[in-house]
């Protein structure tokens, strides 16, 4: 028993344990498994992240600052923010509408619709860009017609926005649907019985109940929208200072062997992803009930 007490105070890894239980492993095995798992995380996740920041500051602070304040970089940042804002807004409106229809009503073909909403996740980003080129490009189905009217979508900002909307399409909807399904319709019915109209019911009752899930979806949607590379690469034409988003700017700098500058811009995106993860973890920890359970990406 003395030995047991010892482990309680000396081992930082295994939890305090009494007699070896039938449903857990020996402490040595726990230590070995945990170590392997942590090594894997360190090599595959932490090292790449560290590499981004180390490489970014290799040329010193001054070089770092000039890389991210140089005009092309600023244009890229502005474009990324604009595109993400539009894409997130569109998918937010869509997500709320789709969740209302799917979660609050029973109708035929509902599961098919839910599957179709998830479809963009199973499409390669490159293909997501390609489909718009085929539709709106100079040789596409609608391209010539739009061209005559002076509307350019491919190799222009509308194309980037469309491709971004496509790849981030399901994010908000898939966070809201399971949660709203779980919440049922009793509170909405109560509001209606108290005289509220549809809009009041939605604003005063439904929305407050899903606000954290909404924020969660928007957060993930935004991270992907700002970071999307493949789909945007295909459709943007990569016109420097015009249709270059931040990830595309990173690529161009990298291919020009301006490694430090590339990593400097990349570090901004990495920072964004860290903030996203932090807020996401906070939401999951603080508002676990407010975001849907049993989520899988």
């Amino acid at each position: 028993m003395a030995v047991e007490t010892m482990t309680l105070f000396t081992s930082p890894v295994s939890p305090p344990r009494r007699l070896r239980s039938a449903t857990s492993e020996a402490p040595e095995i726990k230590v070995v498994l945990t170590t392997i798992a942590l090594l894997f995380v360190a090599i595959f996740l932490l090292l790449p992240l560290a590499a981004v920041f180390v490489e970014a500051f290799r040329g010193g602070i001054a070089a770092y600052l000039s890389a991210i304040t140089e005009p092309d970089a600023l244009t890229a940042i502005r474009l990324t923010l604009t595109v993400a804002a539009i894409a997130v807004f569109c998918n937010l409106v869509f997500g709320v509408a789709a969740a209302w229809a799917i979660a609050k009503f029973e109708f035929k073909g509902k599961s098919l619709l839910t599957t179709l909403i998830d479809l963009p996740f199973s499409v390669s980003p490159v293909i997501s860009g390609l489909v718009y080129v085929l539709l709106f490009g100079a040789q596409g189905y609608l391209g010539p017609w739009l061209g005559e009217r002076g509307v350019q979508i491919v190799f222009a900002i509308p194309g980037i926005v469309l491709a971004t909307i496509f790849v981030t399409f399901p994010f908000v909807a898939r966070e809201l649907i399971p949660l709203m399904q779980e919440q049922g319709t009793a509170e909405e019915e109560a509001a209606l019985s108290l005289g509220a109209n549809g809009w009041q019911t939605f604003v005063f009752v439904t929305l407050p109940n899903v606000k954290w899930a909404l924020l969660y979806g928007v957060l993930l949607c935004n991270a992907r929208a700002m970071g999307e590379f493949g789909a945007v690469a295909v459709i943007s034409g990569k016109i420097r200072g015009v249709t270059n988003t931040m990830p595309l700017h990173v690529e161009i700098l990298y291919n020009e062997y301006a490694f430090s500058a590339a990593f400097a811009v990349a570090s901004l995106l990495a920072l964004l992803s860290l903030v996203t993860l932090a807020v996401k973890t906070f939401l999951e920890w603080r508002f676990a009930d407010g975001i849907a359970v049993g989520r899988s990406h």
């Binding site: 790449p48 992240l49 590499a51 981004v52 490489e55 980003p125 993930l220 991270a223 992907r224 700002m226 970071g227 999307e228 590379f229 493949g230 931040m246 990830p247 595309l248 990173v250 690529e251 990298y254 590339a262 990593f263 990349a266 995106l269 990495a270 992803s273 860290l274 996203t276 993860l277 996401k280 990406h297």
Partner: peptide, 11 residues
């Protein structure tokens, strides 16, 4: 999921 793929690529 959160890190842009291009960033992951160069890193």
């Amino acid at each position: 999921f959160a890190l842009p793929t291009a960033v992951a690529g160069i890193a």
